[in-house]
Design a protein around this nucleic acid. Structure first.
Lengths: 342, 342
DNA sequence: GCTAAATTTGTAAGCGCTTACACTCTTCTT
DNA sequence: AAGAAGAGTGTAAGCGCTTACAAATTTAGC
């Protein structure tokens, strides 16, 4: 199969009998192109199967036709769901998706956000998934010329979609409190050694608020950095049981953490809700199976929604209207790992 | 933050007192550059913080500095693990990773593989994860100019790494057979309506061989297309129990399918290994917790290994040596969902 | 020591696209 | 009905890099 010589804008111009310039404008839907020209160009383009060279386009000051999705890690459930949904939206809109996993590693984080020029050279926009950014990084991003949208990041100068983490945590905690549990632990926070994640901070704060409203104090011994992985949950839970004490109930920052906790429990001959009640956040696909009580959140929806916001931002490109923050609902799903304190 | 004017190769040339051309060659490690020049260029480049523009480089006939990972879907466990591992390797080698999910959708598949020109325009190489390709597609890819490497694809004209699926399935089936189960069902195959996956075909064949070696026939009623998702496993298992019959044991094409089957079982008041023994393939993170017997395979290793092969291929770029196929080991992990037939 | 060959360096022509600017035609003005 | 304004189109100059090819320099050969 011989390499077909690339179809360039020249060919389209030739076939349509117009100049390169007019073709370029027509193709990009710019004004000042007659309908006749539009049609001729569109016709010639499809006939030739023309696709603009992103490299050339980029070099000449145009766009790259690709966007980046930046996630703290690519393996945890939340991110895989969100990434898949966003990728679909991007692909359907003709964008390539560059995946960047920070791997929970500060040095990678710095490398990515420390050189936005490099980023903006390769992509037109970025979709941020629950990334904890410093004020400087936010400013830099906002003025980088890149379109930005995010999931799970509040108070940022770009469009965002997420759930109300503080509220979800508050509700989850209240569920526990309502069941008569007052000695609560939280398995959340950040991966030890990693950068903290906004989400975790907000969830912790919801947890604290719920307790405070019941005039309960948070025992520092029961606040565990468990990250958001199964392994982290397991480690934290083991540590909790072996070296601290068993609380009455546990609020896990996400379902995977709860899974890990459940494992640790079983390792030690304990179980939920017998020895301890436990609730997570997410409604992971396995949660139903494991009977895990949880606050359900629409993950794929968030990814798709944010992706669409980014694409809109890419199109509008004009004066940025005020950034909007969309909040999606969460819902308590009571299953078998939580029950009234005896 | 004013946008720093881009540092171009011109600037480096000026600072080093050499011509653009020499700088370009020096930067890319091409021959015929004196050591003195090398040093001067390297010096000037770092001093200026110079980064080549990938767009310009690409346009001029160089490389894009990015590679694509193509997966049948981005959400299933196997792929998320492999993708994360590969992305890490790519990132560490300075490549951008373009994620392309086929979403188990034939039309997407056709779109991607039907226009390799578009692909080769944006990336230097592709990493294929368990993609079922027609001979024509394989030929087209092989002669597309793209570097290619794959996971889980045998008999392809490029480097591949995978496990011996036929053998793994055979071993898993033999485990069941050895336990006295002779009435076996298989939950594998492809997502109904989707393109078949090589892996599934090979696993089915290992299953058949094991049975044949024991002079057993495969009951077509017990061969279910379950795809490789939890949902698929659940659906297939439900269908099996409700409209066909309950076999003595089940070989699930992957752990997630097995999870789904376990769910379906429980839905109907049954359980493993009481009513049916069940074994999967993968050793998913949750399998230990659920007590699922399985054939463990090193997923992240496969992704990383293949990514390295791709990078090597990218570098060598010369006459392609014979494609190598690397086979990684699998291991039977006997847990609680399989037991001797009573 | 002088030419032939090899090595290092520079010149210049693109790669395919965008865009400022110049140039036709049409339309409105008055 | 003549000039201004605007719509539609074309010309040409890059964007930053790679790469023939030519030029300059060094090295080798006899």
């Amino acid at each position: 199969m011989a390499k077909a010589p690339r179809v360039t804008i020249q060919d389209v111009a030739a076939l349509s009998g117009l100049s390169i310039c007019t073709v370029s404008r027509a193709l990009r839907g710019l004004p000042n192109v007659s309908e006749t020209a539009q049609l001729k160009v569109a016709d010639a383009a499809t006939k030739l199967g023309y696709k603009a060279s992103s490299a050339a386009s980029r070099l000449a000051g145009g766009t790259t036709g690709s966007v980046a999705i930046i996630a703290p890690t690519a393996t945890s459930w939340f991110f895989t769901q969100a990434v898949e949904a966003a990728e679909e939206v991007f692909a359907d809109s003709g964008f390539d998706t560059v995946l960047i996993s920070l791997r929970n590693t500060p040095s990678v984080h710095r490398k990515v956000f420390g050189d936005l020029d490099a980023l903006s050279q390769r992509v037109d926009g970025v979709l941020l998934l629950n990334i904890a950014l410093s004020d400087d990084e936010i400013d830099a991003l906002a003025s980088s010329g890149l379109a930005v949208a995010s999931v799970g990041m509040h108070n940022v100068p770009w469009d965002n979609v997420g759930i109300d983490n503080e509220d979800a945590a508050w509700k989850a905690t209240n569920h526990l409190l309502g069941l008569g549990h007052w000695d609560l632990a939280i398995l959340s926070g950040r991966e030890p050694g990693a950068r903290s994640v906004v989400t975790a901070t907000e969830r912790l704060s919801g947890f604290r608020r719920a307790l405070a409203e019941h005039h309960l104090t948070v025992d520092p011994d029961l606040v565990m950095d468990a990250g958001s992985s199964i392994e982290g949950g397991r480690r934290a839970m083991t540590e909790l049981i072996e070296n601290r004490r068993i609380p009455s109930a546990i609020f896990a920052g996400c379902d995977e953490t709860a899974f890990g906790a459940l494992m640790a429990l079983r390792d030690l001959g304990l179980s939920a809700p017998k020895n301890v009640s436990i609730i997570g956040i997410d409604d992971h696909q396995m949660s139903w199976f494991l009977g895990l009580s949880t606050m359900a959140q629409p993950v794929a929806d968030q990814g798709a929604f944010a992706a669409n916001l980014l694409i809109e931002g890419l199109q509008r490109s004009g004066p940025l209207s005020a950034p909007a923050s969309h909040v999606l609902d969460t819902k308590l799903i009571e299953r078998k790992t939580t029950r009234r304190k005896r």
